[in-house]
């Protein structure tokens, strides 16, 4: 869980950074998107690794949850779990499943159309009928519908809750704990868990308002 989690933390950072280009420079966003969408190394080496990382993280998470649930077949009549552990750490499976459900919408919006354009229609140019890059306008188009924007915002709240525990938990799982560095990691984790989802929310709202 921890190793795939680290990988996904790095992926999220680069995804948010590239998306943020759409706010500050549509031309740069188009160029980087075209590079990421057509570079063979990204498409045929990194993308399969990413897909494996996501599926592995999900599968291991579900397996872990089922095994752990079976470790206590009879539940307590009264349990005050909130007295000794926060909600995020106790409900990673819920926030994780919500993020996975979001993938359905996200893939429907971006990944499946992209696969269709490039590999079924065979159009690798990245150009729209007017001859310019199509990526920025496609992004803007997705954030016109307020319901879709709302779903994105809610999903990123779940992502934030997942990261609040996941970031520092990954370090603990690989044994990285130190009097000097663990407090920094915990603060960095909180910052990451707020900044990255907030960045995605900002991007969605920015395009919703400015389309």
């Amino acid at each position: 869980m921890a190793l795939s989690g680290f990988f996904l933390l790095v992926f999220l950072l680069q995804h948010c950074t590239i998306n943020f280009l759409s706010v500050i420079s549509p031309a740069s966003f188009n160029n980087v998107s075209h590079f990421m969408g057509t570079n063979p190394l990204v498409q045929f080496a990194l993308q399969p690794v990413l897909a494996f990382g996501v599926i592995f993280h999900l599968a291991m998470g579900i397996r872990l949850e089922l095994l752990n649930r079976s470790s206590r077949p009879i539940k307590y009549a009264m349990e005050k779990a909130s007295e000794n552990a926060n909600w995020m750490s106790r409900n990673m499976i819920i926030t994780g499943i919500m993020i996975f459900l979001f993938f359905g919408l996200h893939f429907y919006d971006f990944w499946f159309p992209e696969l269709n354009t490039k590999f079924i229609m065979g159009d690798m140019s990245g150009l729209n009928p007017e001859g310019g890059f199509r990526y920025f306008e496609e992004l803007q188009h997705k954030f016109i519908d307020p319901i879709r924007v709302g779903l994105y915002v809610i999903s990123f709240i779940f992502l934030s809750l997942h990261l609040m525990h996941g970031f520092q938990s990954a370090f603990q799982s690989v044994g990285f704990r130190h009097n000097k560095y663990t407090p920094i990691i915990k603060k960095l984790g909180t910052l990451y868990a707020i900044a990255i989802p907030a960045g995605f929310v900002f991007i969605a709202l920015f395009h919703f308002i400015n389309h």
């Binding site: 000794n84 552990a85 750490s89 525990h165 603990q172 799982s173």
Partner: peptide, 13 residues
């Protein structure tokens, strides 16, 4: 048959 640690920290508390 013990479960796996998910770092909730409840045990320490």
């Amino acid at each position: 048959g013990f479960g796996s640690c998910t770092n909730t920290g409840a045990c320490e508390v």
